[in-house]
């Protein structure tokens, strides 16, 4: 593992009962990166995220967070990590503040004032005493982000962080990520199926398709490797077409044999 690597996914494979999953995915995220995992729905992004946070066990491969194997030393691995996977895991019968209080209790050194700070960071300071059941979808998403930010983590793992947010909320989320990356030197590992969002926020992007990581690099590197492509969207379309072509040729070759 290279120095400065905060997340090291090495040869991750996971197959579900329906035969889908991810196959030998390796990703390294360095300190200060805003790494975006991009791919269509069902490509395997959430599987990578779940395995990276210990919510799911890998069939093969090792995942290290800050040098600690997440499957072996979960507590040390997750100590400096904030997570939001899919929809926020919130207790609807409690207030927003109480939800954060429960999370804060699991960080013995975290001052209680941090709960109000986290609520203010996502613009929910006026709604902290309301029950989560009365929150809109966007408010729940923001509370989920506040919960991930609560411990002032060095690495934030966010799966589809703009889910449920309106345009204004999406812009706010992007500027929050940019601000945290710039001012707090926070590292991000994000996933999204919206390539324009990735392009606006991330400095490095990995493209997942059919459970495989088919391309990885900075935005400039990706555009350069695409030859004449002007945008990530057109690069993605041409890259996917190439992959499908390879798969078809492979199937024909196998049929001949």
């Amino acid at each position: 593992m290279e120095e400065g690597t905060v997340l090291d996914i090495c040869g991750l494979s996971k197959t579900y009962k329906n035969k889908r999953g991810v196959d030998r995915i390796s990703i390294q995220v360095s300190q200060g990166d805003v790494y975006g995992l991009f791919g269509p729905n069902g490509a395997g992004k959430t599987t990578v995220m779940k395995a990276a946070t210990g919510l799911m066990k890998a069939d093969q491969g090792i995942i290290r967070l800050f040098g600690h194997d997440v499957a072996v030393d979960h507590e040390a691995a997750m100590n400096q990590v904030g997570v939001l996977i899919e929809k926020p895991a919130l207790l609807e019968y409690m207030t927003g503040y109480k939800n954060l209080e429960l999370a804060a209790r699991l960080y013995p050194r975290l001052p209680k004032a941090r709960i109000d700070e986290a609520l203010a960071l996502v613009g929910l300071e006026a709604h902290g005493r309301e029950k989560v059941a009365h929150y809109s979808l966007g408010m729940k998403q923001r509370l989920g982000i506040a919960s991930a930010l609560l411990s002032k983590p060095r690495l934030l793992i966010l799966d589809e962080p703009t889910n449920g947010l309106d345009i204004e909320g999406m812009i706010e989320m992007r500027s929050l990520i940019a601000q945290l990356a710039r001012e707090e030197r926070m590292t991000f590992f994000l996933s999204s199926h919206l390539i324009t969002e990735m392009e606006l926020v991330c400095n490095r992007i990995g493209i997942v398709y059919g459970g495989r990581l088919i391309q990885e690099g900075t935005i400039d590197e990706l555009l350069q490797s695409g030859g004449q492509t002007q945008s990530l969207e057109s690069f993605y379309v041409s890259r996917i077409q190439a992959v499908r072509e390879e798969e078809r040729n492979g199937a024909v070759e196998a049929g001949r044999r």
Binding site: T53, G54, L55, H74, E75, A76, A77, M78, N79, V81, V83, I85, E86, K87, A89, L90, L91, N99, L102, A103, L106, Y107, S147
Partner: peptide, 14 residues
């Protein structure tokens, strides 16, 4: 309802 995730992603062992 997967609310257990709020605990599982914290630095606390299962």
């Amino acid at each position: 309802d997967k609310t257990i995730r709020s605990m599982l992603v914290r630095p606390v062992s299962r």
